[in-house]
């Protein structure tokens, strides 16, 4: 049992949508704690509420009811301004389709969240370089997204997500658009990140990615049906 306070704590979390006028609950009374240094993979069939859960955890969607604390802050109670600031500094997001800004270079894409957080230029340029080197793209900082392969683009997206040293890295099907070999490289990167101290929650269909995670949560019809810790936490060697 982990005795450190959880970085993420959800209690009876619910999210309902109106579909054709009728309310449909995508997440139904979910309770979950994630501790620092954990790597949680959320798996389950399509439409089970995984992505909705990830959106709630990332403060880009709001729960209909329940409580969600991240680093002790009540995300549901934040207004748009606070939630935006929170996403900028507290959360890192990796999307299935990378979603890099096509007009910016790899380094500029990584710098974007830091620039928004008003980090001085020299400092953010150095950090972008450092992060891109960390994900293995130190030599491709000036490339535009269309000049990079899918796997490379996703690495840039990971570097971008880590830019402001978030408490939590959320990834939505990070290997969903990649071929098997690049997918494996991505899993290795996540593993390295986690070993270096990053707390990660991923939503995935990818069996290999789920196997690599320390803890696997199975969801069905908006609730957790299984929660297994596969590998216990080690003491972190360092943080990115």
């Amino acid at each position: 049992m982990n005795m450190t306070p959880p970085v993420l704590s959800a209690r009876d979390l619910r999210r309902a949508y109106l579909v054709a006028g009728a309310p449909v609950e995508a997440v139904r009374g979910l309770t979950l704690d994630v501790h620092p240094g954990e790597w949680v993979a959320v798996v389950g069939p399509s439409g089970c509420g995984k992505s909705t859960l990830l959106n709630l955890l990332g403060a880009i969607d709001r729960p209909t009811s329940g409580q969600l604390l991240i680093r002790g802050r009540d995300v549901a109670a934040m207004d748009d301004k606070e939630a935006t600031r929170f996403r900028l500094t507290g959360i890192g997001f990796v999307f299935q389709r990378f979603y890099l800004m096509p007009t910016l270079s790899a380094a500029e894409n990584v710098e974007l969240p830091m620039a928004e957080a008003k980090m001085p230029r020299v400092e953010r340029e150095a950090r972008a370089k450092e992060l891109l080197t960390y994900v293995g793209l130190g030599a491709r900082t000036d490339h535009r997204p269309f000049q990079l392969s899918g796997g490379e683009q996703q690495r840039v997206a990971v570097a971008r997500a880590l830019a402001n040293r978030p408490a939590l890295l959320l990834a939505d099907e990070p290997t969903g658009e990649l071929d098997a070999r690049t997918g494996e490289e991505m899993i290795a990167l996540f593993d390295r990140l986690n070993r270096d101290g990053t707390t990660i929650v991923t939503v995935t269909h990818d069996e290999e990615l789920a196997q690599a995670a320390r803890r696997v949560i199975h969801m069905r019809d908006g609730v957790i049906v299984d929660d297994q810790v596969r590998r216990p936490l080690e003491s972190p060697t360092g943080a990115t």
Binding site: K81, F93, Y99, A117
Partner: peptide
């Protein structure tokens, strides 16, 4: 939407 998601203010 992505910019908003990564924390760029409205």
């Amino acid at each position: 939407a992505v910019m908003r998601a990564i924390g760029v203010a409205r």
